[in-house]
């Protein structure tokens, strides 16, 4: 029944809702699911891990909420908090934009990293935040992630990265591009130490993040129906001059093409991560 309803609503009407502004969808205590268009009580939605109870759409999560869902309560200790956006290109209006955004969102940067426990097991956890310049990676983001990777190496801990990103941060130009090399080099070092790295791709993961640390996990998980790719769909459509088929670059598409290990629903994410981490704790006597 529900599936039928969603299917029906997935037609032309969906296009219309896409153009609505965020404020149209988030009015006061209510929010409209942009997939099934059901009006949801915001608190209910958050209680349901920001997954639409009607159609199962996984709403985008702030880093703060994500950490709350994944880390054992009170265990998250942030690292690299002091690393903030710089302006290497002296790009007109950039710093002002960042400062205004920081004030408005109360988010410091597009990624938050720290050490925490997941079902009692210590890990380094990095969580990107799509609410901050589309989770784009500039120097501060690259530096925070690299520091997180190096912390995992130093403390011999597993690394988990939740990715959400529009790609490299344009305003930092070539410096953003170099963050791809920096983070990937750090992952190479993590691998040499035999440490586990789980990458979790969420909606959307594209561009320079897909083409660096996001694609380098020993195990790569994804949330359902996330957009994952290198080039954005609009760029591809402009290049090939045709519409992309439905579901192109979705998590399900990537699974089929062999680029991710598993699609995990949000309600099962913590448990899955905990299990995978536990499976990598083997000493000579077997797992803990």
């Amino acid at each position: 029944m529900i599936i039928d309803k969603v299917k029906k609503l997935n037609g032309e009407e969906k296009v219309k809702t896409r153009n609505e502004s965020a404020s149209d969808r988030m009015i006061g205590k209510w929010v409209k699911c942009d997939n099934c268009k059901e009006i949801l009580y915001k608190e209910e939605l958050h209680k349901n891990l920001s997954v639409c109870p009607n159609c199962g759409k996984h709403f985008r999560l702030s880093a703060r909420r994500r950490i709350k869902q994944i880390a054992d309560e009170g265990t998250f200790e942030e690292i690299g908090k002091d690393i903030l956006t710089e302006d290497p290109l002296h790009f007109d209006g950039y710093i002002k934009k960042v400062e205004t955004l920081r004030e408005k969102t109360k988010i410091e940067e597009a990624v938050k990293c720290g050490i925490c426990e997941i079902e009692g097991q210590k890990v380094v956890l990095g969580v990107m935040d799509g609410n901050f310049l589309m989770g784009s990676m500039g120097r501060a983001v690259g530096e925070r992630i690299t520091l997180a990777i190096e912390t995992a190496i130093k403390k011999k801990l597993p690394l988990i990265m939740f990715c959400v990103s529009g790609g490299a941060r344009m305003q930092e130009g070539i410096v953003s591009l170099m963050q791809m090399a920096k983070t990937s080099s750090a992952i190479a070092r993590l691998n040499e130490k035999g440490l586990l790295y789980i990458s979790v791709l969420t909606d959307p993961t594209t561009g320079g993040v897909t083409a660096s640390f996001a694609s380098l996990g020993d195990i790569i998980l994804a949330e359902p129906k996330a957009l994952i790719g290198f080039a954005g769909p609009r760029v591809i459509e402009q290049t090939i001059k045709q519409k992309l088929p439905k579901g192109f670059q979705s998590s399900e598409f990537l699974l089929e093409h062999g680029f991710i290990d598993k699609i995990v629903e949000r309600k099962d994410m913590k448990e899955t991560l905990a299990k995978l981490v536990r499976l990598h704790t083997a000493t000579k006597g077997g797992v803990k």
Binding site: A188, A211, A231, L244, F259
Partner: peptide
């Protein structure tokens, strides 16, 4: 730039670039 085509995406353009960055570093 890397080719933004359907085939390239299907065959893991992002993964291919990422792998090169990681491998070249060592």
């Amino acid at each position: 730039g890397a080719y933004p085509g359907m085939g390239a995406e299907e065959r893991g353009q992002g993964e291919a670039i990422a792998k090169n960055l990681m491998e070249m570093s060592k």
